[in-house]
Design a protein around this nucleic acid. Structure first.
Length: 121
DNA sequence: AGCGTGACGAGTA
DNA sequence: ATACTCGCCACGC
């Protein structure tokens, strides 16, 4: 039997790795799908995206976004609420902000996975 | 087996 | 800023 049937109460190992990493993203910071794939050294942005689409509800999904900083389509308001609540750096279109959501300021909010760097002490 | 699709990314026009 | 192309990889039809 080469069938690798997965236990119903367990996720694919890759999915667990993705979710675990997502849970380690500090509040006020974000990680891109591509960065997560690179950090894990496995799969690619689309694979991370697939995992988040399927199981992302169990983790702080709003801290995992696209490289261009666009809020998750369909959950913009919810994500925005979290960002304002945790002080995630946002780029607001100064004058034309009416009509479209702000985007995450990737330059400041991007987290590289180095937890030690969080403690500036 | 081919083909389209997607919570992607980078490059080009 | 937007639109389109190509590369990427797993899934479903």
């Amino acid at each position: 039997m080469s069938e690798e049937s997965l236990p119903a109460d367990a996720l694919p190992e890759y999915a667990e790795r993705v979710l675990d990493l997502a849970e380690h993203i500090p509040p006020g910071r974000v990680m891109t799908y591509g960065d997560m794939a690179e950090w894990l050294e496995e799969g690619g942005p689309r694979q991370v995206g697939r995992v988040m689409a399927l199981y992302g509800g169990a983790v702080p999904w709003w801290r995992v976004i696209r490289a261009d900083g666009v809020l998750l389509p369909g959950h913009e308001l919810e994500a925005l609420g979290h960002y304002r609540q945790e002080g995630t750096p946002l780029r607001e279109a100064g004058r034309a902000s009416e009509g479209h959501m702000p985007r995450v300021d990737m330059r400041r909010a991007r987290w590289d996975g180095d937890e030690r760097a969080e403690g500036h002490t």
